[in-house]
Nucleic acid binder design. Structure first.
Length: 291
DNA sequence: AAGATTGTTGCTTA
DNA sequence: TTAAGCAACAATCT
């Protein structure tokens, strides 16, 4: 699942590959993926260039050279953005002949929803197995409206302990639901919510208003620590995530609780990682060292 | 082979 | 007005 570290990795990769290249052609293979008028979508992109790429929470924002237009892409659960340079491979062939950096998957494939062709013959593939991912073109005003609904960016300087404490005040839910809520903090999903709470030694079902000052500080520090480390290792691949190079994330080997149920806790070496459902999501925790 | 998987929206309820 | 809880969505994996 692409969460903040995965989306950040894709953004950084793509910034080095596609900026200021002319978009020669856009092939929209699944119309449902586009949530703004389909005809305008293709027309607004073709002949233009991406001038910058930003991330807000799990949302990718592509600035277009056409003034006051932005391409938004949300990968949701199984979306992928894969860049390939050069000509496409023959049908049924293997796209990596060992001589380039292309992904080790055949592209396009049956999950390809949009293809962007650039003037230097490189291509960007928006693949999405489960068809939940969305793309749309918005103007500045619409973009503002969308990004205003997101909570604080956890890796920005303005995410202070004081702001975190203020966010927690007057909330009634549990810690897991709080971390997952994009209106409070933007970018945390199911994997990192569990990893953050393990790092902070707080049980995911704990009422957020029952946490003491020390626990709040630990969660605050864990958010930054886990997300930064996950970006350093280019994200987590468990099911379908790959980066813009078509490669898996390496944070998977650092997972302490996510998908580790029934295993012995690596930290306290006493507990067994448990799995339950909290906030409607599969939730893992150590039954000994998380309190 | 039915149930689990998960990010977001939209509905209902408080 | 705001928040909490939950079904729905899709297509695969277990």
């Amino acid at each position: 699942m692409p969460e903040l570290p995965e989306v950040e990795t894709i953004k950084n990769d793509l910034k080095q590959k596609i900026l200021r290249k002319k978009i020669e052609k856009v092939d929209l293979k699944l119309k449902k993926t586009v949530k703004s008028p389909v005809r305008n979508f293709v027309l607004d992109l073709e002949g233009n260039k991406f001038t910058n790429i930003k991330r807000r929470g799990k949302l990718l924002i592509f600035n277009l050279s056409q003034k006051n237009k932005y391409l938004l892409i949300h990968l949701r659960m199984t979306g992928q953005l894969i860049y390939q340079k050069g000509k496409e491979t023959t049908a049924g062939g293997h796209s990596d002949n060992g001589k380039n950096n292309n992904a080790i998957i055949d592209l396009p494939n049956k999950h390809t929803r949009i293809i962007f062709y650039f003037s230097d013959e490189s291509q960007l593939f928006f693949n999405d197995l489960r068809r939940f991912g969305v793309a749309k073109i918005v103007n500045k005003k619409e973009l503002r409206k969308i990004t205003d609904d997101f909570g604080v960016e956890p890796l920005e300087k303005d995410f202070s302990l004081k702001i975190f404490k203020n966010l927690i005040e007057n909330k009634n839910g549990n810690a897991k639901a709080f971390l997952l809520n994009q209106k409070y903090i933007a970018g945390i999903g199911n994997i990192y919510a569990d990893e953050i709470l393990f790092e902070a030694k707080v049980l995911p079902g704990r009422k957020i208003n029952s946490l003491d000052v020390k626990e709040i500080k630990k969660i605050y520090q864990a958010i930054k620590k886990i997300l930064k480390k996950a970006i350093k290792y280019r994200g987590t691949t468990f099911y379908s995530y790959i980066d813009a190079r078509g490669q898996k994330g390496n944070f998977t080997k650092f997972l302490k609780v996510y998908k580790q149920e029934k295993k012995k806790c690596l930290r306290c070496k006493k507990g067994i990682i448990q799995k339950t459902k909290i906030a409607g999501r599969g939730t893992r925790y150590c039954n000994k060292c998380q309190k």
